[in-house]
Design a protein around this nucleic acid. Structure first.
Lengths: 145, 145
DNA sequence: ACATACGTAACATTGTCAGTTGCATTCGTC
DNA sequence: GACGAATGCAACTGACAATGTTACGTATGT
């Protein structure tokens, strides 16, 4: 797969769940549909569970389902749950340079990046999972039969 | 070094050049000060040259210097010259999924990300190289002696 | 008890990027 | 014109991160 597949996988899965909230899905089912591995699914969905977005049940009839209504989940919730930080990635936690130009620069750049990060989250908060779910969803229709 | 070191290196170097625009610097000098490798410096500064921000001269007394006034260079110019795209990185150019949820989702997410990318560039455009250069710069004072 | 599914750790694979080496080319100086 | 110093460029290497994979432990319902 590619970079940022975690966010993709999370949104994709949540979107499907939004279309049929009561259905319990196993990580194997999800992985199969998403073209990835059950363990990867559990890793990603585990983060979402920590954030309280969904629940998992072990054992025989276990699996994953939403723990809150889909329209109560914003893209920001998902983004933050995965603690991805698309924007920054900028050199923090480096050993401090002895060059005054460098240090001043870092401060400035970090400042701007933090601003952007914040505006990204605010923007993501405007859209919910249900908003990204197509009105007529061939996948859901398929499952309904 | 770390991630995003290209942007760091570029800004750092330009900032120094802003403090003494007529001085010609070799990639070896720059690399030495930045704690990196001459070839890496040439790779990064080469991008900036393509964007018309600075010039390089080969041969004996060759090296790098600004080709435009420092206050005419915004952080956006540098960012775009390196074509980094801090924000996106989201799964583009993937093989198109046969899942309608997936495709609709990608479109939405890309939309938001592009918005953010744009706002980042606009924000960067407000700050010039001279703005991130400290008023009293110990490095420049040092060189002046 | 047994099958099923999550939870987690350990390892393998892959992709990316800085770093490195080597060589050709260009330019100034002797 | 020969030589030294610098960029330009291509290829290889090594570190690191993220995904993929295997394996095993644990919990749960039949």
């Amino acid at each position: 797969m590619k970079r940022n597949s975690r966010l993709s996988l999370a949104l994709h899965t949540l979107s499907h769940m939004a279309g049929d909230p009561d259905r319990v899905r196993t990580s194997a089912d999800i992985a199969d549909h998403a073209g990835t591995n059950p363990v990867v699914v559990r890793r990603v969905l585990g983060k979402l569970r920590e954030a309280g977005l969904l629940t998992s049940e072990k054992g025989h009839a276990g699996g994953w389902k939403l723990s809150v209504p889909a329209d109560a989940i914003s893209l920001a919730d998902v983004y933050l749950a995965l603690d991805e930080r698309l924007v920054s990635g900028a050199s923090q936690d480096d050993e401090p340079s002895d060059c005054s130009v460098e240090t001043g620069l870092q401060a400035r750049v970090s400042e701007v990046l933090d601003e952007i990060e914040e505006s990204l989250v605010e923007r993501l908060r405007e859209t919910s999972i249900t908003d990204v779910h197509p009105k007529s969803c061939s996948y859901c229709d398929q499952q309904a039969t």
